[in-house]
Design a protein around this nucleic acid. Structure first.
Lengths: 106, 106
DNA sequence: TTGACATGTGACCGTTTGGTCACCTATGAT
DNA sequence: ATCATAGGTGACCAAACGGTCACATGTCAA
């Protein structure tokens, strides 16, 4: 499995994207805390976090018997840079902003 | 299936990412042309292009009996914007540039 | 040191996914 | 008109994936 393959596979599951959303909102959450926000057993959440960590999208730190999780945005930026060069970025970013503003006002 | 779900599922397969790479390099390629660049039957390639098109990552135009394929970068920018806000973008972009320069010089 | 809590492992199973094939439709050239 | 070419559909099968459970390890508090 290539390096970027792990990133895309990790992003493919909605539960894992939800976990990234939670960490984007606030870093340092533990497994137990994340589990309480999902309709899933602890084992399922643990598996998903493992996939995210292997992909480098989440980095962790042990604190006693707890394990804190942090979002790492670099792999996501690399996805962006693979298909959007600097010259088209401004134009595409403008479209993206427009789309988000339209959805917020809807 | 939510809208963005289709995008992430589409990006999860290496063959589909390779197809996006080919279209990033040059737009307007036809099914037959793309097939010739892959170790796969036409049916497999067609299925993959269908997934990319349903996700909005590829847009098409018929020209006679041919069908031309074009890369649409907007959904990819939206992925970026979901987890990278404007304030951290500059820092992350710098890291991404550094990583790519290191790989190119290696 | 005993017990409760936070996290970790391996096996298991139904569902989804990637890829192929037989067969079909439509367009262009001769 | 005829034939090759470009693209399209539905069924099928092996492999990968999401989720659960029984069981296990390590850490904090009383």
């Amino acid at each position: 499995m290539t390096d970027d393959d792990a990133v895309f596979k990790a992003l493919a599951d909605p539960t894992r994207r939800y976990l990234l959303d939670r960490l984007y909102e606030r870093d340092g959450r533990t497994l137990t805390e994340l589990e309480s926000e999902l309709e899933m057993t602890r084992f399922g959440v643990m598996k998903h976090l493992r996939v995210l960590e292997d992909a480098g999208l989440v980095v962790t730190r042990r604190a006693g018997r707890e394990k804190q999780h942090f979002l790492n945005p670099v792999p996501i930026r690399l996805v962006h840079d693979r298909w959007i060069d600097k010259y088209t970025e401004h134009r595409v970013a403008a479209l993206s902003d427009l789309k988000k503003r339209l959805e917020e006002s809807a």
